[in-house]
């Protein structure tokens, strides 16, 4: 039993280290995507997940002792051999095994480029979230969203409580309540940017006053 386990471990870690590392990287990426709080960290985790899968694909295409999937000079369709025989010939089975498998490479080549395009799209969404809420941390964002939700629910309940006998008015109030969700985001964003704007001049002013004090002294 113990020896079996040892052989298993030996096989796993010496002969199939690529497979083990692909699983480890995939788990690191998955854990980052679930547990990390910062959106940028989540995206880095997503990219690690992606490269882990690409590693797996490339690993299963490897052949022992095979060369890269570009024809050697003797098989080159425009090489001397091809001219001598009057055109390129199909490779035999033994010659086929001497080249690495090109199919996984092709599949993964496009996956990498599409991966960076989707990463850019996700980063654009992160920037938009930051413009609206001033944070890209998951817990802070959730707290802000809940606060917003609570503040938008208040005006909805007030008119509904007063005019409970008139269903039409309450439905209108509901509509206005839902509208105010969109409206409330803009002033908050403005406030935060305004706060940022005002901070810098205050600092400058204090510095200037400090300088003046220094001058007067």
């Amino acid at each position: 039993m113990f020896e079996d386990g040892l052989i298993f471990l030996n096989e796993l870690f010496l002969e199939r280290l690529n497979y083990v590392i692909y699983v480890v990287l995939l788990l690191i990426g998955l854990h980052a995507m679930i547990a990390k709080n910062n959106f940028i960290k989540k995206l880095i985790g997503m990219s690690i997940f992606q490269t882990a899968i690409i590693l797996f694909y490339v690993s299963i295409g490897v052949k022992e002792g095979a060369t890269i999937p570009i024809y050697l000079p003797e098989h080159d369709p425009h090489g001397e051999q091809a001219y001598a025989t009057g055109g390129p010939e199909a490779l035999t089975v033994e010659q086929v095994t001497s080249y690495a498998n090109p199919l996984p490479h092709v599949l993964m080549l496009t996956a990498i480029v599409v991966g960076v395009a989707t990463l850019g799209l996700a980063l654009a969404l992160c920037q938009k979230i930051y413009q609206g809420y001033g944070t890209v941390e998951e817990d802070e964002l959730m707290a802000k969203l809940e606060k917003e939700d609570a503040s938008s629910r208040k005006p909805k309940t007030h008119p509904a409580g007063k005019s409970s006998s008139k269903p039409e008015v309450s439905s209108r109030a509901k509509r206005s309540g839902t509208n105010s969700v969109g409206k409330t985001t803009a002033p908050q964003a403005k406030k935060s940017s305004g706060a940022r704007k005002t901070k810098a001049p205050v600092k400058k002013a204090t510095r200037k006053s400090d300088q003046k004090k220094g001058d007067s002294k």
Partner: peptide, 22 residues
């Protein structure tokens, strides 16, 4: 994949199989 390796040279005369398949 064995077809791609064996026949790319005959079909397209491109030495780089990855480009040909792509």
């Amino acid at each position: 994949s064995s077809h791609f390796i064996a026949k790319t040279g005959v079909d397209t005369e491109v030495p780089n199989m990855v480009t040909a398949v792509l």
